[in-house]
Design a protein around this nucleic acid. Sequence first.
DNA 1: AACGCCGCCTGATCGC
DNA 2: TGCGATCAGGCGGCGT
Length: 298
Amino acid sequence: MPELPEVEVLVRHLAPLVRGRGISAVEIRRPRVLGPTPAPEFIRTLEGATFTGLLRRGKYLVFSLRPPDRSAEPIMLVGHLGMTGRMYLLPRAAELPKHAAVVLELGRQHRFVYEDPRYFGRLTLDRTGLDRLGPEPLADDFTPAVLAAGLRRSAQAVKIKLLDQSLVAGVGNIYASEALFQAGVSPRLAARRLKAPQIDRLHAAIREVLTTAIAAGSTLPLDFSGQAAKTSAIVEAPAPVRGALFYYGTAGPDSPFYQERLQVYDRRGEPCVRCAAPIRRLIQAARSTFFCPRCQRA
DNA sequence: AACGCCGCCTGATCGC
DNA sequence: TGCGATCAGGCGGCGT
């Protein structure tokens, strides 16, 4: 499940591969992923445009493009991977995946592919998703005071609150559990009940967990080929998408580097790494929360 | 206004 | 072996 670190790693790898590339044709296989943008407008806007940049905001990918008409406004293309989305470049000759949602032809050699088996993600000209986002957790303006202000008025459990993208952008279900464990805060504690020291620890834990995950991801092979992926190199991916230049897999619990790194997520019944008490699973707002009942007392 | 809940989707897994 | 049920969950929209 892609959260901030996975999107950050993807953006770092993808940015140099798309920058400067022109879009010669646009194919929409699932109009649903365009959100409110009408398909004809999407095609008309992107055909002939050139990628100029790519950055991350929360879990969103924000592509900037230069339109063919130099006098026109720059284009902003907004991507979100949802639960199962992937974005990568594929050689022109390679077969498209079953759930390719949008394909951008980049000249004769390559295609930019956005695939998503569940179609929960988006690739759209609509920017409204960005407007709802809170502060970037790794930016300087995300301070303990900012976190405290966001938590102060809410009676919701802090775990649920952490999933609210307007509180802080980019924390998802996995890293919410991890950060709360790291901070020693119970996921069930009402947001407004956190004391200043707990808020300080949670603030630090959010940043620590995300930073560590990015560092791990950026040094690991993201093409599943067993070789280190180099951002400047063209890497062959054997599977599941043969021939992908760069392959981003939704690094779920089945991915080895994930399993080693996560301390509580999907570890129900396993001993806590700190105190050996069995990790518990709990359902909050229809989502799994994992925590140590001893290290994270209510 | 904050919050709970539903719908959107397919694939993996499990019980029979 | 096959098949239906269940689960996974980010997010927008809607109702209270």
